[in-house]
Design a protein around this nucleic acid. Structure first.
Lengths: 135, 135
DNA sequence: GTCCTTGCAAAGCGTTTGCACAGAA
DNA sequence: TTCTGTGCAAACGCTTTGCAAGGAC
């Protein structure tokens, strides 16, 4: 896994520092859209001198290189995820958790939107998740 | 228009103060997803003692009453719109402008997502708008 | 009088910036 | 040496909170 990350970074010309690979691998292993604080808390055990600034620096670097995507949440806090598989999101309006779901297909006529050069689409379903429904 | 707003507020039990109706009417006439600051700047001419706190207060009140929806943008600033017509969004990745577009239909199988009670869906197309393409 | 809207000031909090230190090339 | 990754501290900007003054009823 780390080996794959190493090669990926080299291909993109990103110097593969320990911290950068740790953050990338963390996102690769934790598909729950963590916040900066959650990434920081988790990695601080292994990198005792880690700072949130570095987490921000690395995430923004990975975003520039199209490896990571930021999700803007309603509570003014961004969440981050690897930009690898094409999927959609379900957001629970009770607890705010974001779930990955299989890609939701859309149907629209591009010729009716000639004023836009559409390159990407996001679908977010909203509702109540299972554990919140039980409450 | 103001008359419609007055009745709408009364139905919902919202006391129809001048400031509240002004903010609602502003959103009704300006479908360009303004920020709090844009609303404040625009209405401050007519309400010289207006404060941003009041704009926040009113918007959050309208959100609670399902009249207004907040859009979370990538620049950590929320944008607001009336929650009336069912539409989708196109966001320009160059200038950040959000355009309303006709509702984009989705095709997914609800039975394959039994763990979620889906009540709403959002579609956001991303790309470059006309005026940014010319640059 | 009581309740509620408004708004000033301050706090809160996520994020970015300035800058310096240390390590890599 | 030069460049670059890291991290402390401070600044920044949007949003919320505390609280008091004034108006509505």
């Amino acid at each position: 896994m780390g080996n794959h990350t190493l090669e990926l970074f080299k291909e993109l010309g990103i110097s593969p520092s320990h911290t950068r690979m740790m953050i990338y691998d963390f996102l690769s292993e934790n598909k729950n859209h963590p916040t900066v604080d959650e990434i920081y808390q988790a990695l601080n055990q292994f990198l005792p001198t880690l700072s949130k600034t570095t987490v921000y620096n690395v995430l923004n670097l990975l975003i520039k290189n199209d490896l990571v995507e930021a999700i803007n949440t309603s509570d003014n806090e961004k969440r981050y995820e690897l930009k690898i598989d094409d999927h959609s999101h379900f957001t629970c309006i009770e607890c705010g958790t974001i779930f990955d779901i299989p890609r939701v297909e859309t149907t629209y006529d591009k010729s009716k939107l000639p004023q836009f050069n559409i390159v990407h689409e996001q679908v977010n379903l909203l509702g109540v998740c299972n554990s919140c429904m039980k409450k």
